[in-house]
Design a protein around this nucleic acid. Structure first.
Lengths: 128, 128
DNA sequence: TTGGGTGCAAATCTTTTGCAGGTGT
DNA sequence: ACACCTGCAAAAGATTTGCACCCAA
């Protein structure tokens, strides 16, 4: 495994994600980081996003339909996606670990992660 | 909404999915259906897979990293993906509806679906 | 100095779509 | 006959990668 070296681009990407409560796609990250580093390339954004999620500093939310979303918050929590506007929100629910433990009981393999997502209509779209 | 018309290709795709316990990708479906209808095109496979999942006859599993997987079984159940071999398996767990209901209590929007997936090492890969 | 990081562009992979002709009802 | 469906190929969208140069340690 390669040694991790500091990079201002990676730092900026992580900082940006921490400030966001929604869960932007790589493209949105790219557009925003460009304001700070106009020369940054989309490839670099992708490289750093996967790197960060590999080392567990951010969370990658794969395939909510279109592009992947990224979440700066790594404490376990559920997600909700609105079928109408495509927005991805956080959702509070019961303890996820207990759910994973229950599942592990009936399963001869090894369970390490759990991902729960809900779909429906978000508050904003319901009131339209 | 358009009226659904019979098509031997669509029937073959559905039949194929019903016989499989794993959850093949569109490409795998394509390769297999070609044995019966050598002229079928990948586009047709995709068209029918989305059509079938829209009318609820199959399930589309779209968050596993690479290509989407398709499940001929539509009763609600969880899925497990092996980080080692990429295999997607079914998993028995507690009642999913109750989980969705619990989540709905703290959420001002409308929740219609729930999707739970676990990640880890499958039994086969554990014993290696 | 050295190996990881970057920008750029091309390549890859997956899925969708336009079109002209085929087929179920 | 009228839609719907198909095969084909091109297009689109998202992500990865090869390469030469740059920079942190």
């Amino acid at each position: 495994m390669a040694t991790l070296k500091y990079s201002r681009q990676r730092e900026a990407i992580k900082d940006f994600l921490m400030t966001r409560k929604d869960h932007p796609t790589a493209d949105v990250v790219y557009e925003n980081i460009k304001k700070i580093y106009p020369n940054i390339s989309l490839g670099t954004v992708y490289r750093n996003l996967s790197l960060l999620s590999e080392i567990g500093e951010i969370q990658k939310l794969s395939n909510f339909g279109g592009a992947d979303h990224f979440d700066g918050c790594v404490t376990p929590h559920c997600h909700f996606m609105c079928k109408e506007c495509g927005q991805v929100l956080d959702l509070e629910t019961e303890d996820l670990n207990s759910l994973a433990e229950k599942a592990a009981k009936n399963f001869p393999g090894k369970i390490s992660d759990c991902d729960i997502r809900f779909f429906g209509i978000c508050p904003k779209c319901v009131n339209k």
